[in-house]
Design a protein around this nucleic acid. Structure first.
Lengths: 496, 496
DNA sequence: GTGTCGGCTTTTCGCCGACAA
DNA sequence: TTGTCGGCGAAAAGCCGACAC
């Protein structure tokens, strides 16, 4: 598959993580993550995900600044959610705007087994970027031509190489790389009264080259994993008004884009029934490719835990994570005020943003009034009682709890411990969602019992969980390397 | 229908040509045409066209820099060409790049009658822009920050208001508008030794604002039809490497775009059979919208004349128009070396670029080796014998010849004179194209006999042909105003 | 700790005719 | 007829500490 010409790409699909084409540069995953923000949690290649075409359709409509209207044909055989294997995930950044996005290659699957769930959970975990990282929102002085960039003290001390304070004034040359591997050179000087860190020569070229304005943000990252000291500094940007890619309307009409999204998914789902191997005589019509999938492609384990654990009811209290101005996270509290289809005609009984919510704080106007169940952090502790290994933020940070594998083994019902039963997720969901279910969901999702794995223990997966990670490899890059997934029945797990 | 947010739009769909929304400014058709180049000939709203989804698919592939590959499902019911009514055509220009494109709203039709053909022919004619118009390719000096713009003498004298040569030096302020109605102000001065016309103050803002480089072109137009003298100057650009809109790959995957193109057309064609009126309970699923359609949407009359007139055979000599550097046209001569499907699997027996050609001149490397029949100007005169009203360039410039209507009336066979018979075009095509036809084309095109118009004479259309055009209205804008098309059977032709 | 400003130097911009192609 | 250049004055960029919040 060729890469789109106007983006840098980081392909993380083979055992060898460095796959370099001419224009196909490897994007640094930490920098990508910093620019994407802390709420974006990408699933790992080789794991299972849940894809919501409704969300995809919404995204297309938003980026075309157009409502979804009646021209779009209905795809009656297209479910509101598709369980898929994520074959490949690549990171990208628009060459014009530096906007970051991912590309995923998905294959719909009629069923998944217990190990798929465990694998998804396992590779979703160790996710916090451990890189030194700093974010600053640019001021008017930073972006004017009158001067340079005022570096926050903590950022300079944590990220930059130490200055030689014997110099008068102390100064050095810094070299930083952006997402496209472009090199930017700056003069870093410590001067003024009171003393402060500044970037002077070179800074204005960066501002004009990236077309930055006051209010936009820059990310400074100290990249632990580069051997070459000169290449340890990374530099990313994020624009103030994160325009949802309003570009591109000139190639295809909005309706055609909509139809393309839905037809591609429906086609892949339909052809999956005849799928026998990854290379089906060169015709890969059981797969489809998504751009910018981060909102509507959910790691299977995240979805699973949300549906199984969150007992949704009217009036339920919950918390939800939002991003702060400093690129951190903050919880806001709210109450579920309704459960209803966002689009009762096209997407009946869809879980996509079917929860209507109210927010506690007065500034709630900025926050959405419809959310999906996997976005919630539950407020009560029903769910900690049933799934004790989970922390409140569902990041499984509680080391004293049980692992998902242990918990599943603990269950009395052996079939539940060893595989997902047909309709299991749906019956769970149906029991807790008032407005959920009906026979349509059960038949559409068509979860099939896969007996191939029912005899095996989880010991090998437990070993995988304990594998030491090489210190010279980025944990995030590590996470995104696919395991051997094409033949799960052989339980081959490679260790690089 | 909302307009894409990143483009200015000129809507030419109502009897009143000025339809102004907030961001929906009217694009000047002469300026648009100058920027598009002399080879682009748009059909008029309300006329019939032939749409080649294969060409559309090619365009999408090219703009994504990707080959058409096997992921795309086949749409067995989608013909290689669709006869359509062009309901609406709007002119656009990308706000970022100023690249011009059109948007068309099409409705597939199972049949068309004789008047549709005549109307298409009629509104295709008076097309030569009669506006004063000049094009210059920018030099290094023009685009450097060291100086201004050197105006070619003829351009200054023909396009600019006359200078007061009593001044020392003669100078004035010029105000020009671009495609987006942005105003640019320049100082025009006549100085130097030898004397020459220059644009100085204001020019560099234009160069940097439009991001122009040496090799790009500017178009200066004196707009006859603006009353306000200050607004008579129009200013367009065209970039040297006309990138085929390589943008936009970040919203949708290439495959989804492809599928969207084909599925939208197939859906509209299928739903057309149930179509009863223009507003079908608010569901317009018998129409579809194309972006950038100029290459693969052909005016019906142009297609018709090419298929009926050009006797294609191996070794046939022909000429074909190409654009020159100065935005004029030039004919190149060539020979037909083969007739074969460009894509024999997906698009069997398609007329889209099914002619393989060789070029006489050594510089032929730049020219395509596959063309479609409607791109040819025939070299021999077989075709002038059969259709004497046509000039060699098929522009019907020969006033001494017969009009299409007269010629049709002249024919012995009255049914041929008054309407297009079922399968008529195909049987004609089949008789001249070696590799053409088979029962598939005949049934797919499904040309139906429309008897409603068979009793009427052509006198009213002949009158329309002779209507004087108001001097204050642009002929091109005139051409693009739709006639009353929704009920052809009433033969209502309005005169504004 | 850091955002903005006045003062001042350095660099670039941009108008001019000379000259040549 | 018009593309490029050196000269030169004007304007903008850009480095500095002062000062304030």
């Amino acid at each position: 598959m060729k890469m789109p010409a106007n983006s840098s790409g980081s392909t993380l699909t083979s055992a060898n993580p460095v796959e370099v084409g001419e224009k196909n540069r490897l994007i640094n995953p930490e920098l990508w993550q910093a620019c994407a923000g802390p709420l974006v949690n990408l699933p790992a290649a080789g794991t299972h995900v849940v894809y919501f075409p409704q969300g995809h359709s919404e995204q297309v409509a938003a980026s075309m600044k157009k409502d979804v209207d009646a021209q779009i044909p209905s795809y009656p055989n297209l479910q509101s959610k598709l369980f898929c294997i994520l074959h490949k995930i690549t990171l990208h950044a628009d060459t014009e705007t530096d906007e970051v996005y991912a590309q995923m290659t998905l294959q719909p699957v009629p069923s998944f087994d217990r190990e798929a769930l465990l694998r998804s959970d396992l590779l979703m975990k160790a996710h916090k970027p451990q890189t030194e990282f700093f974010c600053k929102t640019l001021t008017a002085s930073d972006t004017s031509t009158h001067g340079g960039f005022s570096v926050p003290r903590r950022a300079a001390e944590k990220i930059f190489p130490p200055l030689d304070f014997n110099m008068q004034p102390p100064a050095q040359e810094l070299v930083a790389r952006d997402l496209h591997d472009n090199v930017w050179t700056f003069r870093h000087i410590y001067r003024g009264q009171p003393k402060r860190h500044l970037l002077t020569t070179g800074w204005s070229l960066f501002v004009s080259g990236k077309r930055l304005f006051a209010g936009d943000s820059v990310f400074l990252i100290y990249n632990l994993y580069y051997r070459d000291e000169k290449q340890q500094l990374l530099l990313g940007i994020r624009r103030a008004n994160r325009q949802p890619a309003n570009l591109s309307s000139s190639v295809l009409s909005s309706d055609s884009m909509h139809i393309g999204v839905l037809a591609a998914a429906a086609h892949a789902a339909a052809n999956n029934s005849t799928f026998t191997g990854f290379n089906n005589q060169g015709k890969n019509d059981h797969i489809f490719i998504l751009q910018r999938p981060s909102e509507f492609v959910i790691p299977l384990a995240k979805y699973y835990k949300a549906v199984c654990s969150n007992q949704i009811s009217l009036g339920m209290r919950f918390r939800m994570l939002f991003e702060t101005e400093e690129s951190g996270t903050r919880r806001y509290m709210g109450t579920i005020t309704g459960i209803s289809d966002l689009d009762g005609v096209r997407w009946k009984n869809s879980q996509w943003r079917n929860l209507q919510v109210g927010w506690d704080e007065a500034t709630a106007g900025e926050r959405r009034n419809r959310v999906s169940i996997w976005e919630l952090s539950p407020f009560d502790n029903i769910f900690k009682r049933t799934m004790p290994w989970l922390g409140e933020d569902m990041s499984m940070k509680d080391p004293g709890g049980l692992s998902l594998a242990q918990w599943m083994n603990m269950q009395q019902n052996p079939s539940m411990a060893n595989q997902i039963q047909p309709g299991y997720l749906n019956s769970l969901a149906g029991s807790v969602l008032q407005n959920y279910g009906g026979p349509q969901m059960l038949t559409q999702n068509n979860l099939q019992f896969n007996s191939l794995n029912s005899q095996r223990s989880t010991s090998q997966l437990d070993q995988l969980q304990k594998l030491p990670q090489p210190a010279t490899t980025s944990p995030l890059a590590m996470m995104m390397q696919p395991q051997q997934i094409t033949d799960l029945t052989q339980q081959t797990v490679r260790q690089n």
